[in-house]
């Protein structure tokens, strides 16, 4: 079995760590993983995309178009930008909160996050919208959005990983003082997924 997962967001949101957590959890249960990351200039507030692939018959580190089982969008427009990767019937987990780029604040391009969410609702069969802002507030940390989104993706069952397996990966990859808060965010994200009713199938 192969699992292809795209994580897309804005530089600085923690997509790289999230992709490492998925890969670590998969490896811990004896699976092979491959990832590809955006590192370098684009990390400075630009679009960043991580590709995570789990399975044995995988060659390219990048997921081919129309092949992703799940897209984890850290921001509405960045989730939409990656839709060409989604396979038919694939899952999209997205954070509701939009991050307007400087270009749109300057008036050079318009951007409305709720329009992007509406578009996803229209286009994606299984969409999970996560109120990342609320979870961050509940956890008193702006840095847990990545793990909250992972929790939602995990609860959807699409990653083929259990919550405990992800928690175990967190304890290996995250600094000790941040393990508890991340585990909490993981649970809260999972709860958000469970409360999401599919729009149409």
């Amino acid at each position: 079995m192969t699992v292809n997962c795209i994580l897309s967001g804005v530089g600085g949101q923690g997509t790289v760590l999230a992709s490492k957590l998925i890969a670590q959890a998969a490896m811990d249960k004896g699976q092979n993983a491959r990832t590809a990351e955006t590192i370098g200039m684009a990390q400075r507030g630009g679009c960043v995309v991580s590709h995570v692939r789990i399975g044995d018959e995988i060659h390219s580190p990048m997921i081919p178009k129309h092949s992703a089982d799940v897209i984890i969008g850290f921001e509405p427009a960045e989730a939409v930008r990656c839709l060409p990767y989604l396979k038919k019937g694939g899952v999209v987990v997205v954070s509701r909160k939009a991050i307007p780029p400087v270009t749109s604040s300057l008036g050079n391009s318009s951007y409305n996050g709720s329009e992007m969410i509406a578009y996803l609702q229209k286009e994606v069969a299984r969409l999970i919208v996560v109120d990342g802002e609320k979870i961050s507030k509940d956890c008193s940390s702006a840095k847990v959005l990545n793990v909250a989104l992972l929790g939602a993706a995990c609860a959807s069952g699409i990653l083929g990983l259990s919550m405990d397996e992800l928690k175990n990966a967190i304890s290996k990859r995250v600094k000790p003082q941040f393990i508890e808060i991340n585990s909490k965010a993981l649970e809260k994200g999972a709860l958000a997924a469970k409360m999401t009713v599919p729009h149409h199938t």
Binding site: V10, G11, G12, M41, A42, Q43, R44, G45, G46, C47, K65, A77, E78, V80, R81, L83, P84, P100, P101, V102, T103, S104, N108, S109, S110, Y111, E115, M116, Y119
Partner: peptide, 16 residues
């Protein structure tokens, strides 16, 4: 063929 996407905001890298 890739699907048609709605207009998306351009997001070039910026100074933090």
């Amino acid at each position: 063929k890739s699907r048609f996407l709605p207009p998306l905001p351009v997001r070039p890298p910026v100074l933090c």
